[in-house]
Design a protein around this nucleic acid. Structure first.
Length: 795
DNA sequence: ATAGATGGCATTTTT
DNA sequence: TGCCATCTAT
């Protein structure tokens, strides 16, 4: 089939090379803003144009949204450039129907392949049937077709909340850490266990590396891990990590499954390869055709690799090491896949040179020496700004008014505020609400986490998997008088098939019996997700009205929206797993509004204007990164990712003080090393005054004159701005010790951090030197303290 | 055994 | 801030 696309003229030479190399192993090193998405989009079209069936293309990206966008854009390209011959395909045939041979039906006895894709489908023109999504979603889509050995028959994907609930259950059962205040919280346990798996290390290794204070609990955590694994196995539950490891095991143990994947997905594209972890890399290798021995590195592939595998990524943007991502995957790809064609996309089409200069400067200081230099032909553009509000509260007010100012010339949806951690934006959110500025926050509360949605989902999940204990608990405890014990008892009776026993136990709770019957009936009916959703809503509505008398209509509406969503699915389990893997309502949020996002969630996105908050030590770089140099390097790459999101306007905010909830007062903050090390010529410096507007600091002119500290009465108007630096005397250390742009500032790099002893608090980690004679020290069990040097002994 | 209330807490980043 | 864990009255 032919299109009028002129690949050579619409792409630059490197992009062209990447988009038109369809066979063999290919590594694309794509610098920030280098047109990576465009290249993948063109390659998708090119593949289809060359006669590759869309259904044999697998596109794995970091989020489903990313895959969706690429497929949509490819489809748009095809539509727009006319594939007249294809217009008769407007009515897309179901994914597995007709043209493609689907082997799963033959192999997986009892499991019929479902006629609707789980992940994203390119639902028009020649792209119908491209399978795209995340590794996790892909893993599930195959796992459900083949029965993994030793697993319950119906597999359910757990979401974050399920995981915590399951851990809690295991904890009660084993009495692990009972009554021990130093025992970590479920969240923490989950983090440790998950790290253990993603980094493929023992609990002890993980603890030794990043939380040595928990080392005394090593055995208990390991034991809890085993109990948790057994809990999941017997109940047919899969957490995020299980999806990957069970999938790998399936590919290694079940020849049919491996053959199915290899045969079906002959053209594989992996985006963000720098952020894959070892098991993901092995899965990719197995499906692409690498031998099991070569995948684990036991043996080296010596002949030219003949599978069609393209990986795309940027080692400088690797920001997920904390969850096991390993840059080595991308660095050694050519070695692992002999015959790899390496293509570098280097010209930046996103940002003006001023933005790139700052970005480059940040990367230059990286100790791991990623040699990258972004360039553009877009021109110098605006000079990035450094803004220094008096406090984090003032920062919120300044940013809010700046957003209003910017939105006079830029659509609000083209303005983004980025920060290191979700809670860093709280103050700004309050401020924006106060001013009536619309915003959408990425990484905020998922709609699926609302109580009524979870209630509804528990019924749906029980229809799919009667052993889903988390769902059972949720459903059963909706009834007054049913708690942990009763719940467990009934669950066991139900599983044992003891009908008489169940009826007896449930007799005291008539509503519960009705629920169980309802679930049984619908399991028998095998209804479509949409019909089931409607039925559940009707069944649950009385309870909804009882539980939420003030706002049940609104919640009901939300549930109906959910049922609408379900109508896109033919298979119940796919609907459930999609909800656990990614919030489907996220992308349907209104388009208007300023974007608030963690830097991690901002990956791959771009905006006209980008504001980075809280560029002070402890926040960014995060205090948790101060232990090991490699973590600090990851913070640097995070900063690089943040800066390279900006097209034209880049502003970095450095509050002089941070509110301290402990003391209720403000503590001085040290500007982030990432800004301190920038040459002053790369940015202009702006400050707050009491009279209005941001005022640019005149570089190197006015001598520093400390202004008296003028406390604002509570509830006073937002700070306005004034031309000189209003720094309170007690904060003058910033002027003296941490001037910006020195290029050689006293950075609290991790390698300079040591430990010290204090008579009362014991051993602590020195977080920061506060000249001339104080240290900020983190004492396990006591938290952060500022201590006079005289009272501690350095180690 | 359950439910509700209270008080103490620490708080990265995501599938 | 919201989320725990523990306590107390039924």
């Amino acid at each position: 089939m032919q299109t009028g696309i002129d690949y050579q003229n619409e792409l630059n030479p490197a992009q062209y090379e990447a988009a038109t190399t369809l066979e063999g192993p290919v590594l694309v090193i794509a610098g920030a803003g280098s047109g990576k998405t465009r290249t993948i989009v063109y390659r998708l079209v090119r593949l289809v144009e060359s006669g590759v069936p869309a259904s044999s293309i697998l596109l794995l990206t970091f989020t489903r949204k990313a895959a969706q966008e690429m497929i949509d854009r490819a489809r748009a390209l095809l539509c727009q450039r006319g594939m007249p011959a294809l217009s008769e395909y407007q009515e897309t045939p179901p994914l597995h129907a007709g043209t493609t041979t689907d082997y799963a039906g033959d192999y997986a006895a009892g499991y019929q392949p479902q006629p609707r894709t789980h992940a994203v489908s390119g639902a028009a023109h020649g792209l119908a049937g491209v399978q795209g999504g995340t590794f996790h979603a892909y893993a599930y889509s195959v796992l459900r077709l083949f029965q993994p050995s030793g697993m319950a028959r119906n597999l359910t994907v757990m979401d974050g909340h399920d995981i915590i609930a399951a851990l809690q259950h295991c904890r009660e059962e084993t009495k692990a850490g009972k009554g021990d205040k130093s025992f970590p919280k479920n969240q923490t346990i989950n983090g440790i266990l998950s790290k253990t798996r993603n980094k493929e290390m023992t609990v002890e290794e993980v603890l030794r590396r990043e939380s040595f204070h928990l080392l005394p609990h090593t055995d208990a955590i390991e034991m809890l891990g085993r109990t948790y694994a057994e809990f999941k196995r017997t109940k047919g539950l899969l957490d995020y990590d299980d999806l990957l490891f069970e999938f790998e095991r399936l590919l290694l143990e079940n020849e049919d499954a491996l053959a199915y994947c290899r045969r079906k997905h002959q053209y594989i594209m992996l985006d963000e390869y720098q952020d894959t972890n070892p098991v993901q890399a092995r899965i990719a290798g197995l499906v692409a055709g690498l031998s099991p021995a070569a995948v684990t590195g036991k043996e080296k592939q010596t002949e030219t690799f003949t599978g069609n595998l393209m990986v795309v990524g940027d080692d400088a943007q690797s920001i997920y090491a904390f969850r096991g991502a390993d840059v080595k995957n991308i660095l050694r790809f050519p070695d692992q896949y002999p015959g790899t064609k390496v293509i570098r996309l280097e010209e930046n089409y996103r940002s003006t040179q001023g933005v790139l200069d700052v970005s480059n400067a940040i990367l230059e200081k990286a100790t791991e020496g990623y040699k990258k230099h972004l360039f553009t032909s877009l021109g110098a553009g605006q000079t990035p700004r450094v803004v220094r509000p008096l406090s984090d509260r003032a920062q919120a007010q300044l940013v809010a008014s700046r957003i209003i100012e910017l939105s006079r010339s830029i659509p609000p949806s083209q303005i983004a505020v980025l920060f290191r951690a979700g809670f860093h934006s709280y103050a700004l959110e309050l401020e924006l609400n106060k001013l009536g500025v619309r915003f959408k926050k990425y990484g905020g509360i998922r709609y699926t986490e609302a109580a009524h949605v979870k209630d509804m989902m528990s019924y749906i999940r029980l229809v799919q998997n009667p052993m889903d204990y988390t769902a059972f608990t949720r459903m059963a405890e909706l009834h007054k008088g049913v708690g942990t014990r009763t719940c467990l008892k009934i669950y066991q009776l139900v599983l044992a098939g003891d009908k008489a026993g169940v009826e007896k136990a449930v007799a005291r709770f008539p509503g519960l019996l009705a629920d169980l019957n309802f679930i049984d009936e619908h399991r028998r009916l095998n209804s479509t997700p949409k019909i089931l959703c409607s039925a559940v809503i009707e069944h649950y509505q009385p309870k909804l009205e009882e539980l939420y008398p003030d706002d049940f209509p609104r919640r009901l509406q939300g549930l109906e929206q959910f049922a609408q969503l379900a109508s896109a699915y033919d298979a119940l389990d796919l609907f459930i797993s999609d909800l656990a893997l990614e919030d489907p309502l996220q992308e349907e949020k209104e388009e208007e509004g300023v974007v608030l996002s963690t830097i991690h969630s901002a990956k791959g996105l771009e905006w006209e204007a980008v504001i980075i908050l809280d560029l002070v030590e402890e926040r960014f770089p995060s205090r948790h990164s101060l232990t090991r140099p490699e973590d600090f390097e990851e913070e640097r790459r995070l900063m690089y990712v943040a800066c390279t999101r900006a097209k034209k306007t880049l502003e970095m905010y450095i509050p002089a003080t941070l509110y301290d909830k402990g003391s209720g007062g403000s503590i001085p903050a040290v500007p982030s090393p990432f800004v301190r090390e920038l040459k002053p010529s790369l940015y202009s410096e702006w400050q707050e005054s009491y009279t209005g507007g941001l005022v640019q600091k005149k570089a190197h002119t006015a001598p520093h004159v400390p202004k008296p500290f003028l406390p604002r009465p509570a509830g006073a108007a937002a700070p306005t701005l004034r031309p000189t630096k209003p720094v309170a005397p007690e904060h003058n250390m910033q002027e003296e010790g941490f001037a910006l742009g020195s290029g050689s500032s006293t950075t609290t790099r991790p390698e300079q951090c040591g430990y010290c002893h204090h008579k009362v608090f014991g051993r602590g980690k020195i977080i920061q030197h506060l000249p001339p004679d104080k240290y900020r020290v983190n004492f396990p069990g006591f938290g952060l303290k500022v201590i006079m040097a005289a009272y501690i002994t350095l180690e």
